[in-house]
Design a protein around this nucleic acid. Structure first.
Length: 258
DNA sequence: AGAAATGTTGCGCT
DNA sequence: AAGCGCAACATTTC
């Protein structure tokens, strides 16, 4: 559910709420979702203060004073909630209990969200990092895969998901079905700009729409990947192509390179 | 009430 | 062989 702009804002808000707080206890409800052993996780983080909370690709990382990192991956349906003794959630994976701060729960009714101690990051750059520029894209796009699939490939760039891939490609006016290697240089430059601007502006909108947000979704402002909209801001009819249960939204304003 | 939503993995096809 | 695309996972929300 959450994509890069959502996670960017969630992690910022979590940092504001929880940095400096001591983790009293981590309660594991669904052990099968731990990518590291329960004992190791408890030993590594319980009793430690949180130094920083930030986003890495599609994960949220909790950095502790002893330099251990706890990584949460929401997958499709993971969600964060603050809780107290008066509310409980179904489908909880872990609960974090703090001194002088509300507890934080990670839930997922689909059961795919997961927790890793000191996650090993892929060496592909984050979508918002400086490394993702024209030169980088030019090199990485030299292949036959469609441009949308390359943008979604976390081994190329970390952080772009299905909905924002469509938004970015419309912004750059490139058809999602274009063969990556066939996209001309001028368009690759446009794409580099669109990646940054679409993601950064979306994060701002989410931040403004709901200050303090740490879960859920706000996507009414998406221009193209939005089932409630029929026309692009430029006036073209939005088309939908389905593959399995996921959809690609696009318009004929986007150039197809084959 | 029923369609739509999301990321990653593994498998099959080229 | 390597690269590419697609289906499946499960349940809630609109």
């Amino acid at each position: 559910m959450p994509e890069l702009p959502d996670l960017q804002i969630f992690s910022k808000n979590l940092h504001l709420a929880l940095a400096g707080k001591k983790l009293q206890r981590i309660k594991i409800i669904n052990k099968s979702k731990l990518k590291s052993s329960l004992q190791k996780i408890k030993k590594a983080v319980e009793g430690n203060r949180i130094k920083k909370i930030y986003r890495e690709g599609k994960e949220i990382h909790f950095l502790f004073a002893n330099n251990n990192v706890l990584g949460f991956h929401m997958m499709l349906r993971g969600r964060l909630h603050y809780f107290d003794e008066n509310n409980s959630h179904k489908y909880t994976i872990v609960e974090l209990y703090f001194n002088e701060a509300p507890g934080l729960a990670l839930t997922d009714y689909q059961g795919n969200a997961n927790v890793t101690l000191n996650p090993i990051m892929k060496d592909s750059p984050d979508a918002l990092s400086k490394e993702v520029n024209y030169k980088f894209l030019k090199e990485k796009l030299g292949r036959k895969a469609t441009i949308k699939n390359v943008l979604l490939d976390q081994d190329v760039i970390r952080g772009i998901g299905n909905a924002y891939a469509d938004e970015i490609l419309w912004n750059a006016r490139i058809s999602p079905f274009s063969i990556s290697a066939k996209i001309p240089s001028a368009k690759v430059k446009a794409l580099a700009r669109s990646i940054k601007s679409v993601l950064a502006q979306a994060a701002k909108k989410i931040d403004r729409a709901e200050p303090g947000i740490i879960g859920g979704e706000i996507r009414d402002f998406l221009d193209i990947h939005n089932s409630r909209k029929k026309k692009s801001p430029a006036g073209a009819t939005i088309r939908v192509s389905t593959s399995g249960s996921r959809k690609t939204y696009y318009t004929n304003e986007q150039e197809l390179y084959k």
